[in-house]
Design a protein around this nucleic acid. Structure first.
Lengths: 388, 388
DNA sequence: ATTGATATGGTGTCAAGGGCAACAAATTCA
DNA sequence: TGAATTTGTTGCCCTTGACACCATATCAAT
């Protein structure tokens, strides 16, 4: 599904993108390093970097002092004045960020709501914030586009929000509306899928190309897949709804709901109840559970871990990933006993597929969704750096 | 993970491959059709086709008589004298075929064994057959390479057979051995993965880019995935081991084994027993079950279908395919009551993801694995038609 | 400080590739 | 028979990256 250049000038686009993607993903580096990494000729890299610099996408600065012989090579860095706007509407808040091409969250605003914001409210708030930024502090910046990390079912190709139960949205043409209001090109994606991409490119799964990502939020379990380096969106864009699967439960005594889904059985509310806590935020829950010796809490953690282990083992058998990343409260299940979870998973998965698996907690924290959404917005730029 | 050309002459390879893939997948067609389909210029297509014809990969023949104005366009067809050797070692037989670039199984030999053949035996048998074919009847042919559809865990990149339980092979360097013996470049793949690719390119899933394929054989359940047009092999090449997952079972009364795997619960042996049959071949089983009114057999079919439905619903929630293809005895579960299976699946899957799903029986029959294996062997040719 | 070794940037030339326009050829239709 | 239509063919042009050669900047040894 990757378009390969069929014309000579398509090669130019490809190579400009290759260079830009290098500095975008791996940070500032010398021209010489780019030459090695891309396999292109020195003179070609020189030419490409000049063009990228001319269009303001990268900046060149004096070489770092190395201790090596030979002419020093100037450092190429993605411009900090090229930004993507990233937004994440949640049930009680709207987060808007400006993420630079270098991967830094340069600006961030969080607006809280007492009730879930409507699509129109969200569009208005985003437009207001972005318009404000355009005069200050991002007056010098080029806004490439806008990415939306949305908790719900999204058609990535059209920006249509099919269903976002926690926001109460249904069949909203959100991508179009926000594009009109901000005059930016907009990409809408599922939050978990974009989170997976963020962890894949910048987080815990950086060196892996086959990644299963599962995130446990207050309202359910979502996830994303990167297989053979490709973000899996599904035929309609609805892939990754792990929370709705019906898990295999080894011990019937672990079951709490008749024919329940994964998120009926494994969820944050049950953890809170078992630990005797009211609604708390994630870090408080993590701290409490990490320290807790309450047998009821421990038993519930174990139960949820067992169910999760079967789900992960199934995923390993079918997808053979090299990395599983767990976010949200699922990271707590992992961190409470990483070896136990790994052992449970390996006991139920095919030996060969499970022997090289790594299970990790997500690494990017609160930046994850903004980075993932920005990445989606940057995709067009990376595919055609000077044409966009 | 798709290599995009970074040099001008890489464009040539891409475009030659584009043309060749067109006639390979879609059959003989006029140059004008190729021009439309590839988006390339008339003169470019002309040049590319000439080069392909010169190297013997395609043949041109006089235009079909159409009833349209304008100069008739000559028909370009993949050469029938370009073949890939495809082999499929099974528990009791070895199948070897020669598949043309046009997709036709031109030669086929099946050798039966009383006990599972060793890797060395298989290599010897294949070498003998291929050497024979080289003098007759394939003396005029160019053998592009050899593809192996192997029932077991295979590292696709190295041709190493990690484990093939039914053949009794373990850590066999099969790809290398057969390459030495036949002097062909060899690609080894998992049989179900290659079957999925065959159904994707030539079979029931032709028009789909997101396909879940599940095959029920005498010895277990294997499968393959095509997601966004990409064959999913996994980090080590072990993806698709559906038989080893632990299924979610809605009714505890449907469970036959404590914490059993999918293929413990859903298998051909249980179907045969319920129908009161001894070991029979697939078509006999299909015929018998299609006609059977035996309540025990019907109950068992229903039970297996219920379990399968949950597995498929889970796959839909996570992967959002547009097509599910069932082969082997799983096709029987489907054909006995297609609407029932679809309803069971849709009842357990997310509405949005399941509403556009198609569930079909596999279409290619006994040619499937040979075509899939040949396709793997053709891949290198299609990526670089004249360089190979 | 001077000089040589090494690595890299810069420039001009070259070959390869596809697009394009003009022309030729082959068919249908009036 | 000629006009309209579609497609193959040919020669030229533009774009692109590779390559060779020279310039330049650093380090190390004298």
């Amino acid at each position: 599904m990757v378009e390969r250049p069929s014309r000579v000038d398509g090669v130019r686009r490809t190579n400009l993108g290759k260079i830009l993607r290098c500095v975008h993903l791996n940070g500032p580096q010398s021209r010489a390093a780019l030459t090695t990494e891309t396999g292109l000729n020195r003179s070609t890299v020189s030419d490409l970097v000049s063009e990228l610099a001319l269009s303001g996408l990268v900046t060149e600065r004096d070489p770092d002092p190395t201790r090596r012989v030979g002419r020093p090579s100037p450092i190429v860095a993605a411009s900090d004045d090229v930004v993507a706007i990233a937004i994440n509407p949640e049930i009680d808040a709207l987060e808007v960020g400006a993420v630079t091409l270098g991967g830094r969250v340069r600006e961030r605003v969080r607006e809280t709501f007492t009730q879930p914001p409507s699509a129109a409210d969200t569009v208005a708030a985003v437009a207001r914030i972005v318009t404000g930024w355009r005069t200050t502090p991002l007056a010098e910046c080029r806004m490439i586009g806008l990415g939306v990390a949305l908790p719900g079912l999204v058609r990535a190709d059209t920006g249509l929000v099919r269903l976002a139960p926690h926001l109460g949205w249904r069949d909203e043409n959100f991508g179009h509306a926000i594009s009109l209001a901000t005059e930016l090109s907009v990409v809408v994606g599922n939050d978990a899928t974009l989170g997976a991409q963020a962890e894949h490119l910048f987080g815990a799964a950086r060196t892996h190309h086959n990644v299963v990502y599962l995130n446990g939020g207050a309202s359910g379990i979502g996830g994303g897949l990167i297989l053979q380096g490709v973000v899996i969106e599904g035929a309609d864009g609805y892939a990754g709804e792990w929370g709705h699967i019906h898990p295999g439960i080894d011990r019937e005594s672990d079951r709490r709901t008749p024919s329940g889904t994964l998120e009926d059985e494994v969820n944050q509310t049950r953890l809170l109840q078992a630990a005797g806590l009211g609604p708390v935020d994630h870090s408080a829950l993590a701290a409490t559970l990490a320290a807790s010796e309450d047998p009821r809490a421990l038993a519930e953690i174990d139960r949820q871990r067992r169910i999760l282990a079967v789900v992960l083992a199934n995923a390993i058998n079918v997808l053979n990933p090299s990395m599983i990343v767990l976010g949200g409260f699922l990271a707590i299940l992992h961190e409470r006993d990483p070896e136990g979870l790994l052992a449970d998973v390996q006991a139920r998965a095919l030996t060969s597929s499970a022997e090289n698996i790594t299970i990790s907690a997500a690494a990017l924290g609160r930046d994850r969704l903004l980075i993932g959404a920005a990445e989606a917005a940057f995709a067009a730029l990376l595919a055609d750096p000077v044409g966009v």
